[in-house]
Design a protein around this nucleic acid. Structure first.
Lengths: 228, 228
DNA sequence: CGCGGCTTTGATGTTCATCAAGTAAAGTGG
DNA sequence: CCACTTTACTTGATGAACATCAAAGCCGCG
């Protein structure tokens, strides 16, 4: 268990633990390449050839896609250890979407061919991968359904609670995205997102100070999110 | 290559070909259980424990989910060899959604534990599974985005073209779903789906005879679908 | 300091959900 | 097989939700 690889919470490594002996594990961990990106940098671009197996070590990223009319849509916002590169990494030669850091982020990269090679030679590792993928995609699909069936106020409340409860686990946080990005996430216009935020402020559900949001009345916000 | 298993086009078997020897393949194919369902029958219910690995051999099914207000949402419509049971089969103990036949369908069932056992012991098979899963989930996510960013007319046009071009590959076909189900699919009301269909008929883009739809002006319909 | 991008608010019109009402089709029990 | 019930389909009228357009303030950056 005393590995050279310093990433203690690495999900991928956890997938390895059961499936690799220590030598293999060591090899794998030393092969990885870490890259840092600042907020705003796009490190995977739609259409690019997939050559690496990438996952998020720290930070926060958005998966997004440009539609036919040049409008950007956000597919989801991913936290560390959501295997962001898994979406199309095994099914396609090229990325179907882009990935951009919305907070300073560190990613871990392995050569895709190496990962495939390991997967071929080690069924337990593959099965672990399947489970991670399944979780990640399930999350996206279910979230997408949840957002879809809400009205504007419900959608905004849902997003605010996602940031507050799931991502930051705090009542006060800096929004890592612009109003426009929220709009791209929930499929509404920027103006209406802003209007809804202002309404929430007037109703004393939240406080707004630029990008800083404080959740004041979580209970009511939850009710709005659940559309009661 | 002369297998007892009669399912010539079986995708799962194809996944095996590269990974199993003939004896294993034979074993696998004889373990499977086929079940038939009539249009309208629900054979996977949200919340049920997952014990089998299931995929669609023939027919057409809908994946759907009941939301907090008892309203049904259709996640996607799946054709044969889309691995319908894969969505949450490896990530959860229970199904997150239901599956209902919208045409008479035949499914193939294997014990999930058996499949997992094979996956553990055979990396190549697992990797093939990963690719199938990745394809299936990618499709759902991308389609979901496409539908989301369209207006009513675009959504309805999109669905009609999906049935016509992708599923039936004919200009005249029987709609396998009710107007209400279309509404549940695209997230609109039944009335507005009907209204839009009537508009398309008045504009001579389609002909309607009950459930029978004929695509008359595919070009214009495509433009509406692409939202030009 | 001025430019461009982000934010905010208001006015206006379009799109869509809701309500209502009626017809057609399909299943149910006597 | 028919009366009865239920479900699917259809159209219209109305109001609510939302997009669009317009204008102005704010802020960071060259």
């Amino acid at each position: 268990m005393n590995l050279k690889c310093e990433c203690e919470k690495c999900e991928l490594k956890n997938a390895f633990f059961n499936s690799f002996d220590e030598f293999e594990l060591q090899t794998f961990c030393t092969q990885k390449v870490e890259r840092k990106f600042s907020k705003g940098e796009t490190f995977i671009k739609e259409g690019e050839k997939i050559e690496e197996f990438i996952y998020l070590k720290s930070g926060l990223v958005k998966l997004h896609k440009t539609d036919s009319l040049e409008k950007d849509q956000i597919i989801t916002i991913a936290e560390p250890f959501d295997f962001v590169s898994l979406l199309s990494v095994f099914s396609d030669k090229a990325y179907n979407y882009s990935v951009t850091a919305i907070e300073d982020s560190v990613i871990c990269c392995l050569q895709l061919e190496d990962v495939k090679k390991y997967a071929r030679s080690n069924g337990l590792f593959s099965l672990n991968l399947i489970e991670k993928m399944s979780l990640a995609t399930d999350k996206i699909i279910l979230e997408s359904l949840e957002i879809r069936n809400r009205h504007l106020r419900g959608k905004v409340a849902f997003i605010l609670l996602k940031f507050s409860q799931k991502i930051y686990q705090r009542n006060i946080f800096e929004l890592p995205v612009s109003r426009r990005e929220i709009a791209e996430y929930i499929g509404m216009t920027t103006e209406n997102v802003i209007r809804t935020l202002s309404e929430f402020r007037k109703d004393k559900l939240i406080k707004i100070n630029g990008k800083e949001i404080e959740i004041v009345d979580e209970k009511t916000l939850s009710q709005i999110s659940s559309f009661g």
